[in-house]
Write a protein that binds this DNA or RNA. Structure first.
Lengths: 346, 346
DNA sequence: GTGAAAGCGCTAACAG
DNA sequence: CTGTTAGCGCTTTCAC
C-alpha cells in the first residue's frame, strides 16, 4: 500500500529544496522557469498532492468551513445546502457538514466538536434563537477570529452576520392581496415562536390585518411548529370553526402540506372552496398542477450569500462591531389559490 | 482575539508534561488520579480543545470521511445524507460534503481535492458507472488504504464495497403484480443506462414481462434520465400511442412526478384511468392523498449502512480482495394506483 | 532565486 | 506512572 508522496520526495526528484517545491505549489514567490518545470514534472510523476493537515498546522489556518443544518432531509435545507456547496467550491472551500435534527443538545455537541477542526468559518441555522449555550459557543468562535454567519434563523444577538429574507414584508403583501380581493376572515398557521422565520411571518400577517382594520382573532391564529402533522390538525380545527376563515396563510412548506392534507380529506379545493397561500414555493406542487400561491424566495441563493458573506469576512481582517444583516427579497407569486371562494362552502 | 490554547499551556497549567496531557486526553495509557484531575481542570479552565490538524499530522490518520453526492437537492440524496450524518456522528466521524451536480468533470476535481485531506474513507454515489477517470481515482484511494463505499450506484468494478438495494427484484414483483391483476400493456420509463439503478429496474421489468410471456414492445420502453421533464414527455408519448399502455412503471421519484404532471394535464387519474407504480416512495404524495403504489426502500438506512461498511473496513485492517455488496430489500407497497382501468379511457 | 532551519501542535516510542 | 524527544509534512523567515 503505497503512501502519499511528500514534499521531500518531490524535492529530491526535482533536484531542488523543499522550499522551492513549496513556492511552486503555492505560487508564493518567484521561481526560475527551469526549476518550476522540474518541480511540476516531479509532482506529476509522483502524483503528489499536498497534505492539508500539515499545511493547516503550519499556517494555523484551514480551508474548511463548518455548516450546521437542523434538518438535512427537509427540502428547504437541502436547497440551502445546494447553494452553499455551489458557492464553496467556487471559492475553494470545503464543507464540514453537521446535522442537529433540531435538537439543541446535539447542536452544542456539534459546535464543540467543530472547534477541533480550526475551521475558517461557520454557517449555521441554529435550532433556537434563545439558546444561551449555543450563543456562548458562537461568540466563542467570533472571539477566536472564526466568523459566524447565521442563515435564515437568527439568535438573540446582533453580533453575527446574518442572511435572512424579507419574510415580514412578504407575508404582509400576501395578506394585503388576500384582503384586496375580498377576504376578511384570514387565518394563519404559525411557525415556532423561538425562530425568526416563525415570528416574522406572523408579524407580517398581523401588520396587514391591523393596517386594514381587521381584527386579530385568536381562533384564526393557530400555533404551529413547521411540521406537517401539527399543521394538518390546525387546518382541521380552522375548517370546523363556527365561522371558518375564507383564507389560510401557511407559514412554511411543511405547513402547506399539512393544510393540503386536511383540505384533501375535507374535499376542499384551494382557490375554489378555500384560499391558501404558503410561505416558500414547492416545485413538486406545480408538477401536480396545484395552483398554489406563495411567498417565494431564492433558497439556493440564500446559501450562496451566506458563503459570500463568510468569504468577505475572511478577506477583510477587520471584525465589524456588529454583524451585517443581509435581507434577500421575497416575491409574491399568485397562481390562483388565493381566490375568494365563490360561495360559502364551509 | 485570543488564540486556542495548546497542549503546552495545559501542561504548564497542570504542572505536568505534555505527554501526560496527551495521555489524559486520549485515554491512551494510565495516568495517576491526581494528575488526571489536574489536567482535566486545566483543560476546563483554559477551555482547551485539541488541534485536529496536529493530531492528524502526527498520527497520519484522520477522523473525516468524504461524501460525494450527485444532486444534493434531490430528496432521495438528502435522505441518504441524513442517514449518513446520523451514523457518522454516532461513530465520531466527520463528514466532508462534496456535490458533483451529476457532472463527471466536477466529480474528478472533487475526488482530486479530497486527496489533500487524508480522509479515512470515501462514500460516493458516482455520476456514471462507466467513467474510467473516476474509477482510476477510486482505485487510487483503495491503493492508499482509503476504503471506498459505493452507494446506490455502482461502477464497472467489483473492487469496492457497495450498498445497493434489490431494485431488480422490487420491480420484478411490482410488474408481476400488475400482470396478476390483469394488466397486459405495461410500459416503463427507464433511468439512465449508465447507472445501476437505471439498468436494474429495467431488468426487473423485462424479467417479469418475459416470465409471463408478454412481449417487450419498443414503444413501451421509453428512455428516461431520472428527470421530471423527460419523464413528462415520455408519459405524454405513451398516452398518445395508438395502443396506449394500461400501466406505467416509473423508474424513480422524479420520473413519477413527470408522469403525474402528464396525467394531470390529460385529466387521467391514477388507479382509475391509468395505472402507475413508481420506484421510491414519495411521502409528500401521501399528504396529498395520492394513492401511489411504489417499490419502496429505507433510504436513510442505505446511508447508515454505507457508513457502517466504512467503519468495518476501518476496523479490520485487512483489505478484502473483492468488495462486499450489501443489498438492502425493497418492498412493494400497494395503495391503489396499480389498479386496472375499468374501461378503456385512453 | 534558492536553501537551511525553525516551528505549527500533537503522538508515540523510549528512558527512567 | 512520567518526562524527553523525535518526528508528522508543510510554510516561512532569514541568509546567501
Amino acid at each position: 500500500m503505497k503512501q502519499e508522496a511528500n514534499i521531500y520526495e518531490i524535492a529530491k526528484e526535482a533536484g531542488v529544496s523543499i522550499a522551492t517545491v513549496s513556492r511552486v505549489i503555492n505560487h508564493s514567490s518567484a521561481v526560475s522557469e527551469k526549476n518550476k518545470r522540474r518541480v511540476l514534472a516531479a509532482v506529476e510523476k509522483l502524483n503528489y498532492v499536498p497534505n492539508n493537515a500539515a499545511r493547516s498546522l503550519s499556517t494555523s489556518t484551514s480551508t474548511s468551513v463548518g455548516v450546521v443544518i437542523p434538518d438535512i432531509s427537509n427540502p428547504f435545507f437541502s436547497q440551502l445546502l445546494q447553494g452553499i456547496t455551489l458557492a464553496s467550491d467556487e471559492m475553494g472551500l470545503n464543507i464540514f457538514l453537521f446535522g442537529t435534527n433540531e435538537n439543541s443538545e446535539r447542536e452544542h455537541k456539534v459546535l464543540d466538536s467543530m472547534r477541533e477542526h480550526r475551521l475558517r468559518g461557520v454557517i449555521i441555522t441554529p435550532v433556537s434563537a434563545e439558546d444561551g449555550e449555543t450563543l456562548r459557543r458562537l461568540h466563542n468562535f467570533e472571539a477566536r477570529g472564526i466568523p459566524v454567519v447565521l442563515l435564515d434563523r437568527e439568535v438573540d444577538s446582533t453580533a453575527f452576520d446574518r442572511v435572512v429574507t424579507a419574510d415580514d414584508e412578504g407575508v404582509f403583501l400576501a395578506v394585503n392581496e388576500l384582503i384586496r380581493i375580498g377576504h376578511r376572515r384570514i387565518a394563519i398557521i404559525t411557525g415556532p415562536e423561538a425562530s425568526r422565520p416563525g415570528r416574522e411571518r406572523l408579524r407580517g400577517y398581523c401588520r396587514s390585518m391591523e393596517a386594514h382594520g381587521l381584527p386579530l382573532r385568536d381562533e384564526y391564529i393557530r400555533k404551529g411548529n413547521f411540521m406537517v402533522q401539527c399543521a394538518y390538525e390546525q387546518a382541521l380545527v380552522l375548517c370546523s370553526l363556527p365561522e371558518p376563515p375564507t383564507a389560510i396563510f401557511s407559514s412554511n412548506n411543511m405547513t402547506t402540506y399539512g393544510c393540503l392534507k386536511a383540505f384533501g380529506e375535507l374535499g376542499l379545493r384551494i382557490g375554489e372552496d378555500i384560499a391558501l397561500v404558503g410561505f416558500d414555493d414547492i416545485e413538486e406542487l406545480r408538477w401536480l398542477n396545484y395552483n398554489l400561491s406563495v411567498v417565494s424566495r431564492d433558497v439556493p441563493k440564500m446559501g450562496e450569500q451566506a458563503m459570500r458573506h463568510l468569504m468577505r469576512r475572511l478577506e477583510n481582517e477587520i471584525r465589524p462591531e456588529h454583524g451585517t444583516r443581509t435581507c434577500l427579497p421575497t416575491e409574491l407569486i399568485l397562481r390562483g389559490s388565493e381566490c375568494l371562494p365563490k360561495k360559502k362552502t364551509l
